[in-house]
């Protein structure tokens, strides 16, 4: 694998996580549990989308085939998307949505912090902006998780159920392959072990305060990084892409 191929894939994976998560979170806009939280969640959605756009644009440049952010978002097929399955899982109830975000935020923040040191200047610059946002996101989702866990009996049960249901999707966050190995060697990507350690620490600390139980690491879902997704993904993309695809070549 050439270095630019690896960098393209690595950047695209980061971009896809954020793009698909923002697509899911965008479904909440106008349907949140209370106005203040509706607004807060949309701020998060906009942050993810903005970061996804920066990464997609950069991925397109690295690839060098003239693909824009929109080409990459709207004209790839399902098998070409490289996000983890975690972010494509349907929103479910608000506990599910925030547990999903928490598990992602706890991974995303240390990853972006580590990327500040990347030898790739563009990735480091994107991470510079993302770190500030991700710090707030983790704070927001942690606080909600604690409120749910230590709130009412109902909220505790919902949060625990969401955690139990989603846990199987967390393994994928820390998978590595030849792409990662090559970029770690080049000082572009961080060693994922340190990210996993930070993630695990955050998860333990927040779950303890939330009086929630960390699920056992059982079967872990896999495949997203190689374009093998859940059955929900096709519907998500159909919705996201259909206007753009219905009018090939049109500008909007």
């Amino acid at each position: 694998m050439s270095m630019s191929n690896a960098l393209f894939t690595y950047t695209l994976r980061r971009a896809d996580d954020l793009l698909i998560l923002s697509q899911r979170l965008g479904e909440w806009c106008g349907h949140g549990p209370v106005l203040e939280e509706d607004i807060a969640l949309t701020n998060r959605t906009l942050d993810h989308l903005g970061e996804a756009r920066n990464l997609l644009t950069y991925a397109g440049q690295v690839e060098g085939k003239g693909r824009s952010e929109d080409d990459l978002a709207y004209l790839r097929m399902e098998r070409e998307f490289t996000n983890v399955k975690l972010v494509e899982t349907p929103n479910g109830n608000y506990a599910h949505t925030l547990v999903r975000s928490f598990l992602f935020d706890a991974y995303h923040l240390p990853l972006m912090q580590a990327l500040l040191e990347s030898k790739d200047e563009q990735l480091a610059a994107i991470a510079g902006k993302a770190v500030k946002e991700a710090t707030y996101h983790l704070r927001h989702s942690s606080e909600w998780l604690i409120r749910f866990g230590d709130g009412t009996e109902e909220s505790h049960q919902r949060a625990q159920a969401a955690l139990d249901a989603i846990w199987t999707y967390t393994g994928e966050l820390f998978e590595t392959d030849a792409v990662d190995a090559e970029l770690v060697k080049a000082g572009i990507a961080p060693d994922i072990a340190s990210i996993q350690e930070a993630w695990s620490k955050t998860v333990d600390a927040v779950l303890a305060e939330a009086t929630l139980k960390r699920p056992e690491d059982g079967f872990m879902a896999t495949g997203g990084r190689n374009g093998l997704h859940t059955e929900q993904m096709g519907f998500l993309l159909a919705e996201m892409q259909h206007v753009t695809r219905a009018y090939p070549g049109a500008t909007w």
């Binding site: 965008g26 806009c29 106008g30 349907h31 106005l35 607004i39 959605t45 989308l49 753009t244 909007w252």
Partner: peptide, 29 residues
């Protein structure tokens, strides 16, 4: 308008629409 957030035909339009619909929540508030 929220009806079209998930289907906005470009990412730029998606971001604009999200920000606009969010503003409306703010205005309601």
């Amino acid at each position: 308008e929220g009806n079209w957030i998930t289907r906005a035909p470009s990412l730029r339009r998606k971001a604009i629409l999200l920000a606009k619909v969010q503003d409306e929540a703010g205005h309601g508030l």
